[in-house]
């Protein structure tokens, strides 16, 4: 079974971007360009705080996703095992 990184709790995201920077370091670079995770922030007029959304490219699963999950201080990510692989086989 293939392991996949899933954004399970986006509401817990604090926007620190440690996941983005971890992903980039695994690709031997520092910066935001070409990152396989992107964190977008949004401020709603009636809310005091920011809300975050997290986009993850499927290619992320070729990286060390356990390190990406573990670096998040608020446990936004989960690693799921994709049982569809077995069905395909």
């Amino acid at each position: 079974m293939t392991k996949k990184l899933k954004v399970s709790f986006p509401q817990k995201c604090i926007g620190c971007e440690l996941c983005v920077l971890e992903t980039q370091r695994q690709l031997n670079k520092v910066g935001l360009e070409g990152a396989l995770i992107r964190v977008f922030r949004n401020k709603k007029a009636d809310k005091e705080f920011l809300e975050y959304s997290i986009d993850v490219e499927p290619r992320i699963n070729d990286l060390d996703i356990e390190s990406i999950r573990n670096i998040c201080p608020t446990e936004v990510f989960e690693i799921l095992e994709d049982s569809n692989d077995e069905l395909i086989q």
């Binding site: 817990k12 926007g15 620190c16 971007e17 440690l18 920077l21 920011l50 201080p73």
Partner: peptide, 14 residues
Amino acid sequence: EKGFFPSCSGCPMG
């Protein structure tokens, strides 16, 4: 203290 507030880029504290 750690929290769940919007954090600065590169800081895990929130």
